[in-house]
Design a protein around this nucleic acid. Structure first.
Lengths: 234, 234
DNA sequence: CCAAAAGTGTTATCGCTACACCCATGA
DNA sequence: TCATGGGTGTAGCGATAACACTTTTGG
């Protein structure tokens, strides 16, 4: 039944190359990281790049981004959202290519650190990025800005933490993203007052002798909060 | 010197049709409006649609959106921003087309109301829109949501008002966008406390015997406010 | 027993909300 | 003179920011 390539309509329009690129954020204890790859195709072969691919005839733009993520990291079910399009005529000397950038947030647990080996990718400290091809550096800057704005008003920061995390870990994440210290006591009060976290019995003792209680984000409780008309703000 | 269509690279990628569509908001005294057109090409010829066009080989995506706006309204220098991409495979039965939607805000002064005659377009009350083709209704909904969020944190509402406006007019605009009443006195205090408006000597007497003072948005003052670290919030 | 991080409570201040009254003017 | 919308002031409340002390425990 597929007739979407019918040549009857739009015959005078010029087809263009459309790509997706993914800005992949990770977080490790006290630093924000970015996953980069060495480009496999010319031009700019072997230079550092975001992962990307052309959008195929038979897949949606979002599906293309998800395919790219899966192909290069082996992961699915990762938080991902559209960042925006990059459509300057001369942005890619290889051809006229429009790219729709997406940013993704992923937990950087031990198993995922091995992405390096399997997929020939590398996690970079955010403040020690190598030169990137094309306008990828701009994409990264734009993604960071969006991340800063978005984490403040939406509960997406949890995507960067393991399922179970401590309040100090969560605070550290926000401190790294915002690049400024947050008051320990006020932060704890604020996040707990929203009642969107479940306190567990376990403690994490990796960063103190006393140990800190682990918590888990509860999406249902978050939905209840939204229904009550309460805003998520940090 | 243009070599961006060199066939050497990316030979295996499939080109696709890429379009831009514009969601054009207007504001008239006490109602939000949307500019729509009757589509000139098949499929769906003569049905109501957002304005749009295919992106050409030699123009950026943004330029394409600006061209569309100019072609159909005669206007340039209109506030416009990317909304996002619409990239489902089956979204357009005419062909596989990805659209990058943009929303625009324009002053709806007397001269622009004549857009109707000149360009065969029509302003619709926002709550009385006709059926729209494809996923254009979804685009409009998404644009409205973005407008609501954005006007709250960025000084873009002024784009919908004449250069000179009264505080009650400005408040009315926000009431229409947010769909809820705002306290007259608190609104005035808040907006004036930011010190981003210039008070003029003139009064507007069209809506009251006493008349209301006219103001003008001052972008330089807004920049100063931003530097002071003060947030724009309404 | 002590260093180091986790956890708790209190107070002052700022901003927002909710309100009531006066002002200017054309009809 | 009065109806109508414009303009101003204030008190109360809630959220946030600033800040000091106690708890736990491995070494």
């Amino acid at each position: 039944m597929k007739e979407n390539t019918s040549p009857i309509y739009y015959a005078d329009a010029t087809p263009l190359l459309l790509a997706v690129d993914c800005i992949i954020f990770g977080f490790d204890r006290d630093s924000l990281k970015l996953l980069l790859f060495q480009r496999k195709v010319a031009p700019f072969q072997d230079e550092w790049s975001l992962i990307g691919s052309f959008v195929k005839q038979e897949e949606s733009v979002l599906k293309a981004a998800e395919r790219v993520l899966k192909t290069h990291t082996g992961l699915t079910n990762v938080f991902m959202e559209e960042l925006g399009s990059y459509g300057e005529v001369e942005r890619d000397p290889g051809a006229r290519v429009i790219s729709i950038a997406h940013y993704a947030l992923m937990r950087l647990a031990e198993e995922y650190k091995q992405i390096d080996q399997t997929y020939k990718a590398q996690w970079f400290e955010f403040d020690q990025l190598p030169d990137l091809i094309l306008d990828h550096h701009q994409m990264v800057q734009d993604a960071l800005e969006k991340l800063r704005r978005k984490t403040r008003y939406r509960p997406i920061g949890f995507e960067l933490l393991p399922e179970k995390f401590t309040i100090p870990q969560l605070r550290m994440l926000y401190e790294v993203i915002y690049q400024r210290p947050l008051d320990r006591r006020n932060f704890r009060k604020k996040i707990l007052s929203m009642k969107i976290l479940e306190k567990l019995e376990e403690k994490d003792k990796t960063s103190s002798r006393k140990g800190a209680f682990l918590y888990r984000f509860n999406p249902e409780k978050y939905q209840e909060m939204v229904k009550r008309g309460v805003d998520f703000v940090i």
